[in-house]
Amino acid sequence: MRDGVNLARIGIPVVALVTDEFWPQGDFVAQSLGMPDVPRVQLPHPIAGTGTKNMKAIAADYAPLIIKALEADHD
């Protein structure tokens, strides 16, 4: 989330990826850095360590949501 805010600050389109377990923390960080509305997409938890097949499946499922969030932010 902090990376997302920092990139957004220098004008780079950004979507922060945050797992559901860490969603409240993402909100907190975005709020505390003064950018509460930075675009973000919620991913299932856990992802790390769940294997290549699962990670590819998650990437396939969530890529459209990430693109949608980028387009919405651009609008």
């Binding site: 790390a48 360590g49 769940t50 097949k53």
Partner: peptide, 10 residues
């Protein structure tokens, strides 16, 4: 411990 879901012996 960071698992590897591809490894049945993790």
């Amino acid at each position: 411990f960071s698992g590897d879901g591809d490894d049945p012996n993790q």
